[in-house]
Design a binder for these strands. Sequence first.
DNA 1: ACTATTTAAGTAACCCGTTACGCAAATGTG
DNA 2: CACATTTGCGTAACGGGTTACTTAAATAGT
Lengths: 163, 163
Amino acid sequence: MEEDFLVEMDYAGLTARLKRLSDAFVYSTKEFYKSVDLDIEPNWHMIFLILQKNEQMTVMEIAEALQLSHPAIVKLINKMKKRGYIKSEKDPEDFRKYQLSLSEKALEKLPEIETYWEAGNEAVAQIMNHNREILKQLEILEQNIAEADFKQRTEQILKTNKP
Amino acid sequence: MEEDFLVEMDYAGLTARLKRLSDAFVYSTKEFYKSVDLDIEPNWHMIFLILQKNEQMTVMEIAEALQLSHPAIVKLINKMKKRGYIKSEKDPEDFRKYQLSLSEKALEKLPEIETYWEAGNEAVAQIMNHNREILKQLEILEQNIAEADFKQRTEQILKTNKP
DNA sequence: ACTATTTAAGTAACCCGTTACGCAAATGTG
DNA sequence: CACATTTGCGTAACGGGTTACTTAAATAGT
């Protein structure tokens, strides 16, 4: 077999493996979209879905729902706007906000895109061996980090070891 | 509880969750290093370890061992050089290559850094509930993707569904 | 020996996400 | 009502990684 040093690193390799795996999906998805001539980015998927569910949302609402920082959402939304997938209108009750929603173009293209997403989900299922275990494991990490993150835990451990 | 839309997305949220989790570790580690006044970046860890194991390596060798692209390694190495952690000398047998190794400064600082890494590993173990299951699951995904990546599988599924 | 091909590395152009900062609008408080 | 604080969101500066392209050196092949 081939040697994979990140695997060999064991616990210390976890972070980089998560990133590497995520990238493997992202770049592969990107190429897939290109091959079927779809003018969208992989991670717009989550924006499409959340705006399908909620119709109208603000930047901050999306950021909270996805648990990402607001600048991340701003960037995504700006690109999607530039390509005409997002409609945004000033909130009449709070002029700081813009109510975001899917554009006509987005709604129009969605049916086609959805057939690709369905195939993609099946591909992910295959890669997961049709087993939900990885999702459960991710949830455990997410919850534990929410309780106390890496930095807090590491500092606590050092404090306990020292004296 | 709070709602996490990426979790709700199920299979379609996997990629973004992997990235989000990786980032949670990276940025928390970054802050930890800052708090203990360590002048290194989180993902230099893998470079330090692999050069501790192998003494001398080229950019391509590191890229292969970590299964990352060579430009990724070039960038890491350049930053580490700038901070004085990497020694590089032209390979006398092949002038395209540079043999990379840890500098005196790196070797000097390593003992201290290692105490932090040990605490960090324990923190990761806590976050994993002292259970190796997540590592096994990642290995499954890595292997399945190595056999056929997301794009190939998705195209295959579409081909099978169509006719 | 002398081209043709492969390989090592570096660079450019992108996409992703984060923290830090700034500004304007909304809300709270004396 | 006026001043202070909070909230929404846009931008800048970083750090990470990828693919595509280029250059130079090593290796193949006739």
